[in-house]
Simulated scan of single mutants.
Amino acid sequence: MSNEFNDEFVKEIPDHVRQRLDQTYEKIRFQSKKKKKHNIWMRMTAAACCLLIVGIASTSEPVKAAISGIFKFNDSGIEQAVNAGFAEETDQSATNENVRITLDSYFSDYNKIGFSFQLLFEDPTLLSGKVEWISLDVRLKNGDGEYIVEFIPDTKPLYGKSDYSVGVHVMNPIIEQKTGIAQFDTVFDSTEGNFPALSNAVIEVESINVQYANGEFKKIDGEWNLPLNKAAKPFEVVEYVARESDKIKIVKANGNPTSLSLTISIDGEPTETPFAIMKVVDEQGIEYEAGSTNMTVKKGYTLISTTFPISSFVHAEKLQLIVGNEEVELTKTND
């Protein structure tokens, strides 16, 4: 069994839309320039690689009722966490430029941070015609002043150091043209599993981007600040240990609510992608393929960090790690 994408639900962003998105976000400068890093299978590290899932709704139900599920990225780890109640519901709203943005819910652990936004356009005609996608220019600032993620075009300055290797996923489950309601969900991945805990954080939305099918693009600049007054749900990290193979050393294998964070070490510096297959298999035989992956070359060895979409809420006692032709058993440590 596998947690592959459901083709009936997912619609990958068309090439012509991708090109316009590339022009808007030519470079999402998430990765630190201080480190030497090589991308292996980086699925979601820049806007050019974003997966945009768009569902045009026809309902005219109230805003709260119009939200047809959250964080439906076909990511089994996120879905397992949300189903277990890990997402925190909020009602923080801000209105500017005749658009109200509400943070409907969010989650945060060391591997992933996700936000589900509701947008209400006081002038619904902004959504008239065929809208292909809606996105936000958004930054997340922690209570200590650190900017953790900044999803912005290259035309805007970075406020933070960008020390986190981050992938990004975005989607529009709803764009309701008659009532001016839209939903924008986004998930940020830390390939190294090193997001800090959020405390008194603030989401800073600077712009709303609307892309129309006829090629027209509208950018609404403003200021929508959404404090995270409700703390993220608490969680415990599940640690796994493994016997070391001749070729692979397990540096870290930590289970978070949204995913398993794994770092392995191999000798030397590979001249090409070292492994064509990287996945874990749980006790039920379900396979979880590696997500965003980062490779850091050190002196004499290489670190490979990635996440797998299996939640700690699965309570797996053992996992089988498959890396190329190598297999390593991961065993949960005693509580």
Rank of each mutant, 00 (worst) to 15 (best):
E4W: 01
M44I: 02
F71K: 05
R100T: 15
F121K: 02
E176G: 12
S108F: 02
V202G: 04
D335K: 15
K298M: 14
W133K: 10
K33P: 13
G167N: 07
T306S: 12
T24V: 04
P62T: 09
I148W: 08
S2C: 01
T331V: 15
K33A: 11
K27W: 09
Q177R: 13
N194H: 10
W41T: 08
E97P: 01
R20G: 10
H315C: 12
V205Y: 04
P157V: 01
T258D: 04
S165C: 11
N254K: 07
A47P: 00
R139H: 06
E326G: 02
Y110E: 11
E204Q: 12
M44H: 09
N3C: 09
T24P: 00
D335E: 15
G55S: 14
A232C: 11
I67A: 11
P274S: 07
L158K: 03
Q320E: 13
I174D: 11
A242C: 05
V297R: 08
P274T: 10
L127G: 10
A182E: 03
E132D: 13
F121E: 11
E289F: 11
E204P: 03
G324R: 01
I277K: 13
V166P: 00
K218Y: 06
T24E: 14
I113K: 04
K230T: 14
F71Q: 04
R100D: 06
S292D: 12
A242H: 09
S32W: 08
T273N: 15
F184N: 05
E79D: 10
D75C: 07
D91S: 14
S2P: 09
D91T: 09
G255V: 05
V237F: 07
K279A: 02
E236A: 12
T263S: 14
S190I: 01
R139V: 07
P274N: 07
G300T: 08
N3Q: 07
D282N: 15
I208W: 05
E79Q: 15
I152L: 14
A276K: 10
A201F: 01
K11P: 01
T45S: 13
I277V: 13
R243D: 14
G129P: 05
D91M: 07
D267L: 13
P274W: 00
S128L: 01
Y110S: 10
N334L: 15
V17P: 01
G180M: 06
L140F: 11
G145F: 06
G129M: 09
P14N: 08
T59N: 15
F115P: 00
A48P: 00
N3G: 04
F107D: 10
H169S: 06
L226T: 03
K252I: 03
V328D: 01
F195V: 04
H16D: 14
S76D: 14
V314E: 13
K249H: 09
T307E: 10
E192T: 13
V149P: 00
N111F: 00
S116C: 10
D221M: 06
M1S: 03
S2T: 12
E79W: 12
L321K: 03
L136E: 10
A87R: 06
F235G: 00
P62D: 14
L127H: 01
L127Q: 07
I248H: 05
K247A: 08
